[in-house]
Design a protein around this nucleic acid. Sequence first.
DNA 1: AAAAAAT
Length: 614
Amino acid sequence: MRTSWADLAANSAAENAGPGSSANNVGTGSNLAPTRPVYVPPHLRNRQPAAESPAPAPAYSGPSSGAGNSGSRYAAPRNDYRPGYGGGGGGRTGGWGNKSGGWDRGREREVNPFEEEDNAEEAFSEQENTGINFDAYEDIPVETSGDNVPPPVNTFAEIDLGEALNQNIRRCKYVRPTPVQRHAIPISLAGRDLMACAQTGSGKTAAFCFPIISGIMRGQSVQRPPRGVRTVYPLALVLSPTRELSMQIHEEARKFSYQTGVRVVVAYGGAPINQQLRDLERGVDILVATPGRLVDLLERARVSLQMIRYLALDEADRMLDMGFEPQIRKIVEQMDMPPPGARQTMLFSATFPKEIQRLASDFLSNYIFLAVGRVGSSTDLIVQRVEYVQESDKRSHLMDLLHAQRANGVQGKQALTLVFVETKKGADSLEHWLCLNGFPATTIHGDRSQQERELALRSFKSGNTPILVATDVAARGLDIPHVAHVVNFDLPNDIDDYVHRIGRTGRAGKKGLATAFFNDNNSSLARALSELMQEANQEVPAWLSRFAARSSFGGGRNRRSGGRFGGRDFRRDGSFSRGSSDYYSAGNGSGGGYGGSGGYAGGGYGPGVTSAWD
DNA sequence: AAAAAAT
C-alpha cells in the first residue's frame, strides 16, 4: 500500500478531535458530536454517593477502586486531591471519599477540553470532509523485535482501558487504533519498555498516554513521600524537545484523561513559572515538560521524580542529539528517578539512528523495538516537487508560488503555507519581505518570545497570516491542520528533517504539496532526497538524479538506513541477534503486509538498500 | 553551521 498511512493514522489521533472531521465515524454509528448519551456531568455524578458508599478512602488510588467495575469509576473521581496532596506527611487527610467535607472546596472544576476545540475548529469544518480511508493503513509494514512481544490488538474494545478512558476515546472520535497504537498499547500495558519508530501524528501521543493513564488509574495507592511541602511527585513524565510540542501533548493528554481523575500538567520555558508552579501544587500525575524548565523545577525541589512509574520521550532522537543529551541524562540518570526496570520507559521517534539507539538503550530495560512504516515515504497525498533555484532567486521564486496559489485559495482565503528556512535571522527577514510584498506572514523561531511564538502559531492556524516562516522549531511533531503547502525555502542538511517537515502537510487524507528549492549548496542531500522521492513514487527531475549520482560516493552520511522505516533495531546488527523474535518468522505475525506491500518494496529502492535488512 | 532548551 502506498498511501499515506501515517498521515491517515495521524489524523485519527489528532484531527478527529475536531467536529469537522467526522469522516471516521462511519464505523461507529454512534453519533459523536456533542451528544453524550452516557455522560453524566460531574456535579451530578458525585451528588449521589450511590450504592458504593464512601469507602474509607483507599488512599490515593482513586478510580482504581472501581477497576473492572466500570459503573463505579466515576463514583470516586480523584479530582479532589486536596491541597494536602503530596504535601508534608503524605497528607491526604481529607480523603477523597469524603464527599461532604472538602469536596466542593478542593475541587477544581475540570474544563471540558472537548468543548474548547469545537469552536476553534469550526472555521474549517466545512472543507474538511474528505473521507479518511482507514483500511488504507491496515497493512502497513510493522517490525517488532525483542523478547516475548505481546501481540497487537485490532480494536480498542480488545483492550481494557477502563470506562472513563473509553469514553474519552469515543469523544475523540477514534474508531480504531492506528498501527502504532495497535502494537504499542499492548506492549505498554504488559509493562514492557519500548523503543518505537513512528512519526508524530501517527497516533503516537495516544499510544503512550492511554497506557499511562490507564496504569495510573488502576495503580495501587501511592504514598507520596514527604519532602518539602511544595514538592510534587508525578507518576509519569513526558519529555519533548520544543515548547509547542509539549503544549500540544498536554492538550491531547488532557482530553484523554478528562474525568479520569488523572491530572496532567505542562511545564516549559519562556512562560512565567508561577502559573506552572500553581498548577503543580494542585496535583500532578502526568508531567509534560521541556528539559530546561524541568531541570529548573527539579533544582528548586518543586518536583521530585522519585515516584515516576512511566517515562516517555517524544522525538527521542532529537532529545538525545548532541545539544540535548546531557540535560536528558541529568534528568533521567542523575536526579531521583527510579532506574530502568523500576520504571517503564517508552521512547518514540520518527527516526532512530544507530548511535541514538545506543544512547537510548541506557534508559531501557529488556525493551521491545517497534517500527512502523514511515510517513512521507510512501504517500501519494503529498506531492513532492524539487526546483533548482539559486540563492538569489529564491525570494522571487517563492513569490511566484504564492501568487499562483492565491488564485486557488479556498473560500477566498489563501491556503496555509509553511515556509522552512535555515536560520532565525533568515526567518525574520523573509517574513518582513513577504509582508512588504503584500503577503500576510508571520514567523516562529527560537529568538522570538514564547508569547510571540504562540501568537504566530495561532495566527497561522486561524488563517489570519496564512504564511508561516519557520525554522526547524516547527519541523517536528507539531500538528497544524490544513497546511496545504510546505516550502523548503532552505533545504535541511538531514533527510530526516526533510521528512519531518513535509509531514506537516498532507494530513487528514487531504492532499498536500511540498516544494523544495534546491541548489548547489544542497548537493549533499541530493542522493537521499532523490531516493526518498523515488520511494514515494514522485517524479525525480533528471538534474537531481545527476546530482545524486555525483555525490553517491562519499555521501554516506545522509544515506538512509532502512527504506520504509525510520530505523531498525540496532541490537540486530551484531553477528548474532540478541532479540529472540525474528521479523521474518514468528515476529511477523504482527506485520500484516510486511514484505508484501509492493508499494514499498518495489518503490524504486536500489538493490543496495534491501540488503540493509539483513 | 544552525536550531532547540532555564533564568
